[in-house]
Amino acid sequence: MEHGGHGMPGMPMDLPPFTLGQGLAFTGGDPFFLVGCVLALVLYGWGVLRLRRRGDRWSPGRTVAFTAGVLTVAVTMCTRLNDYGMVQFSVHMVQHMIISMLSPILLLLGAPVTLALRALPAAGGGRTGPRELLVKVLHSRYLRVVTHPAFTIPLFIASLYGLYFTPLFDTLMGSRAGHIAMMVHFLAVGLVFFWPIMGVDPGPHRPGYVMRMLELFAGMPFHAFFGIALMMASEPMVSTFKNPPASLGIDALGDQTAAGGIAWAFSEVPSVIVLVALLFQWYTSEQRQARRKDRAADRDGDAELVAYNAYLASLQARGGRG
């Protein structure tokens, strides 16, 4: 069957109309992502087991979050969603939104960097092992640059407008390697954008909670505007999806409008998840600080309060003499 776009060579063009059941059928997808997902789960599991064996605790919630993050990548890239995403704009947009906005948040909530720092053995003897290498990367100038809001926010925005509204998208969709590179890019951009905002793992930038919320909301409106631009367009804007296979039974412009609606609506999802996570972190941080102050007061007989009362008394005495 003819396909007017730049679909990937060897891609089946006789897909039936999209349904959730059809889309979620496991196909293995690109081996790159299948191997990557299995490897991520194995390494994370090894880290958790290593901590448990030496009697250290690791939050089950973090394990669940990381596993869910890996599974969202697997569902996006290792099911028939990946086939439909090559020829149907709305399905591709679901893939893009999940892998760039939902998967990174779940993976980061799993605190993989913290786990690696705690689980990897120290090389010792002044040698550089995997743990020392990770510490070096975390303190590198390169990481300070790529996780700075002045870099991450423009990159987050450019990944939408610079890709879909230029011929670059069609070029990447024309080959399997290009498609993999694009999806890896979406995941990587999501990770560097949300990493400083989530603040679960150690990193070069750790702004206060209010600043993190501002960073989050600085990027999200551009996702909404991008979705609206697609919805308002009077003709198909991406060559790859201009002539969808007849077997899908869809209209290119109608499907593009649906893709725009997905991009617009999905921008709210990460905002809510991250906001809830930040507020929870803020609350627990305040609780920890209050407990620390209480313990200090118990140890020193509340010396800070005694000193403050003495200071007030001295001010009052000085005022009385005046």
Rank of each mutant, 00 (worst) to 15 (best):
T284P: 01
R144P: 01
R80V: 10
K136L: 13
F156M: 15
W58C: 11
M232H: 05
G129R: 00
L187Q: 04
L49C: 11
G69S: 08
F193W: 09
F280D: 14
V75A: 12
P130S: 06
G203N: 09
M101K: 03
A177C: 01
V137H: 05
V269I: 15
L109G: 09
A317M: 13
M220V: 15
M211A: 15
G178S: 05
S59Y: 04
I153Q: 06
F66Q: 04
L120A: 01
V146W: 05
G162L: 11
R291G: 13
A317T: 14
L315N: 09
R212T: 12
A65T: 10
T257E: 12
R54I: 12
I262W: 00
L216R: 04
A297G: 03
L43A: 00
F26I: 14
H148L: 06
A317L: 13
A297M: 01
R206K: 03
P204V: 04
H179T: 10
M97N: 13
V238H: 03
L315K: 13
M211V: 15
D56Q: 14
H92K: 00
I262L: 10
A252E: 00
A188P: 06
L278F: 11
T171M: 06
V91W: 05
P112A: 07
H139F: 06
G69V: 07
M97A: 11
L71Q: 06
H3D: 01
R53F: 05
I197N: 01
A297K: 00
Y161M: 05
G126K: 07
F266C: 07
P196M: 07
G126N: 03
G126Q: 10
V269Q: 10
T114C: 13
V135P: 02
Q281F: 12
S175C: 09
F66R: 00
D56E: 15
G45E: 07
A277W: 02
M97F: 01
R321V: 10
Q95E: 15
L143R: 04
M198Q: 12
L187K: 01
L107Q: 09
A122G: 06
M93V: 07
R299G: 05
E2G: 10
S247K: 05
G260I: 06
A277Q: 05
A74Q: 04
D170G: 06
F165E: 02
A229C: 04
V70H: 00
A65H: 12
G254L: 08
G29V: 02
P154E: 03
I180P: 09
E2L: 11
L248D: 12
I153G: 04
S267T: 12
T76D: 12
M232Y: 03
F151C: 06
N82Q: 15
D255C: 07
R321E: 15
G7A: 15
